[in-house]
Amino acid sequence: MTDDELARVRNKEIGFVFQTFNLLPRASALANVELPLVYAGVPAAERKERAMEALTRVQLGERVHHKPNELSGGQRQRVAIARALVNRPSILLADEPTGNLDSTTSEEIMRVFEELADQGQTVIMVTHEPDIAAHARRVVVLKDGVVSSDEPKAVFQARIAQGGKAH
């Protein structure tokens, strides 16, 4: 694929959520969420509307005009999720989305992901923590780059509960 085709796939088909949030520091939450729409060529009015909608979906309807450094870690990650969602991607890729968050906030973020999954959004998440992995419907364990297990949520949870190792 050419560079432009790759850019289109990143823009339309995949939403990224990073461990370090990767928001633009000088732009407001709203502007950050609007960014993928800017590159998709969506007109300004519709852009704002859809960005607000995405922010509401992650329960962040109020603090939209704040800059990232005025938001807590959990709020930042919600902005990042809203940004990943705003173009209605086929897949949402999350790379250790809770890695920089405390456990309470992590749980909040995981609830957001669960709700999205319930609404039919495919979420693929990478994590080192079995607790976090336990939120997933399907858990694929990778060890040294090789798949060591691929189980539904219930089986994985049972194995962890018995004190078994994740991998």
């Binding site: 560079d3 432009d4 633009l24």
Partner: peptide
């Protein structure tokens, strides 16, 4: 560079 990376991850093309 990082900002450019973010923008590209969100679908910015070269010309953008």
């Amino acid at each position: 560079t990082r900002e450019i990376g973010i923008r590209k991850a969100l679908g910015a093309r070269r010309r953008d």
